[in-house]
Nucleic acid binder design. Structure first.
Lengths: 219, 219
DNA sequence: ATATATTTTTAGGCTAATCTAAATTTATAT
DNA sequence: ATATAAATTTAGATTAGCCTAAAAATATAT
């Protein structure tokens, strides 16, 4: 079985691969995992030897199929536990990340399958991220960043791109939650900030905030 | 914070102390934890240095107050997670031990307090063991071993002394569960086996089985 | 095209938790 | 009371995962 540490490496490589199709650099991984580049090199050699990554000296690293499978299972567990914490234990969406980081390593697929059923087979976690099924299949979603909506267009909030505590708490303060309907009333050329009507309430959001909100267009 | 390993040592010392008031021996710990005596000695020195155990060379070890506090918190977490697994995820009582062994190390008291409330503040785990409250207080219970009942006395099953998979599955096969009412109809002098009426059904149990069942007397 | 900067790897070490084998201490039995 | 057995500790190694400092490879800028 993959150790706690190995699971975290695979998850990190998976996660960084989302934004970088060509593969992941040693330094990017070191940053992400809070370790030093030398440590990453050591581990990549081991993961490579165990058939979990494709690694060649000085080149970007990618996951093998086996590596992807393990990473997706960790992501699945992480997101299901987050749903549990929010839906059943009433935690807020900005409070669950660290606990889920631990719970994701509990080693029982039977447990996680039963948890999934107990939670009524949720398809998305509290931040709107999709939950892989037991075969690692992720439901694809046609969500876009709020910045892509033009003036006059309507949408509803489906997720957040940045799930940092700070951003989630900012959204709480603004009373924004998943499912909220909104209309883009105006975009200021100067700083690309937007005037929005969210659930009937007029609010102004910076471009940065809008980039970090995913929406579905309402035709 | 105590590491996963340290937590397991403290829990083991706590657990073995239940049956041996004077303290725990190095070999007993090695057996219980599946490691070698030399390893135990090393660790006891560290735990002693950290104020978690009272350790003197060649003498039985006991937990300090701080050690007891940590051990009880682990026990609390273990038992609450077991209740969750059985009550909410429909696992059987012989299936939950290994998962709870992992879940007990999840590091959040807030999580465990919320879990407790979610489970309606259970006082006992699925094997009848008491769940320490958040201050480490355990509800004392006047349960006795079934072997202490005399012929003609009645009781109901409150717990198991041995919670091995094997014993629990044996009980399942015999349709015995916590709460069952029973009457001691006869005790055979020869092997101390008992004829019992359990929930109206006549059954014979060996002395070993009776020793491992806790009951409350019904006057 | 070459010097400089950046990234990555190598080499050598550290710590926690484990092991085996040998030495020491304590317990037991005659 | 002393020999023997059992339990415990010490000494010296190992492995996983991490580190720093130096070397090597790759990328960038003039």
């Amino acid at each position: 079985m993959a150790s706690f540490t190995v699971e975290n490496y695979l998850k990190a490589i998976y996660s960084l691969s989302r934004s970088n199709e060509t593969g992941v650099s040693t330094n990017a991984l070191a940053d992400h995992l809070g370790t030093k580049a030398a440590t990453i090199t050591d581990m990549l050699k081991k993961l490579n030897a165990n058939g979990l990554v494709h690694y060649k000296k000085y080149q970007a690293t990618t996951l093998t199929d086996k590596g992807i499978e393990i990473a997706l299972n960790i992501v699945r567990k992480h997101r299901l536990w987050e749903v549990f914490l929010v839906e059943k234990l009433d935690f807020k969406w900005d409070e669950v990340h660290d606990m889920a980081e631990e719970l994701e390593h509990i080693d029982s697929n039977e447990l996680i399958d039963r948890l999934e059923r107990f939670l009524d087979n949720p398809k998305f976690d509290p931040h709107g991220d999709p939950i892989p099924d037991k075969n690692g299949v992720i439901e694809r979603r046609d969500q876009i960043q709020l910045t892509e909506l033009k003036v006059g267009q309507k949408g509803y909030v489906t997720g957040v791109k940045d799930s940092s505590k700070e951003f989630l708490q900012y959204l709480d303060n603004q009373n924004i939650e998943l499912g909220n309907e909104l209309l883009v009333k105006d975009i200021f050329d100067y700083d690309k900030s937007r005037v929005l009507i969210i659930e009937g309430q007029e609010t102004t959001f910076s471009q940065q905030v809008c980039k970090n909100l995913y929406v579905n267009i309402i035709e």
